[in-house]
Amino acid sequence: MDSLYILIPIAVVFVAVAVSVFFWAVDNNQFDDLEGPAHSILFDEPETKQNKDKQP
C-alpha cells in the first residue's frame, strides 16, 4: 500500500501534463473549427502531386 505515496503523485503529474497539453491545443486553435476536420479526414489527396511543382 505504501506504493500509493509514489503512484498518487505520479498521477497528479499526469493530470498536470494532460491539462497543459489541452491548454496548448486551445492556444494553437485546435478547437476553432469543430466541424471541418470531421469531414476532411474522409477526403483523399488529389491524384496529381502538387508538392512536386512547389519550390522547396
Binding site: 473549427d33 469543430l34 471541418g36 469531414h39 512547389k54
Partner: peptide, 14 residues
Amino acid sequence: SIKGVESVTVNLSQ
C-alpha cells in the same frame, strides 16, 4: 498549389 504559399487552413464554421 500556388508557388510561394507555405500553408493554408480553411475554417468551415467561420
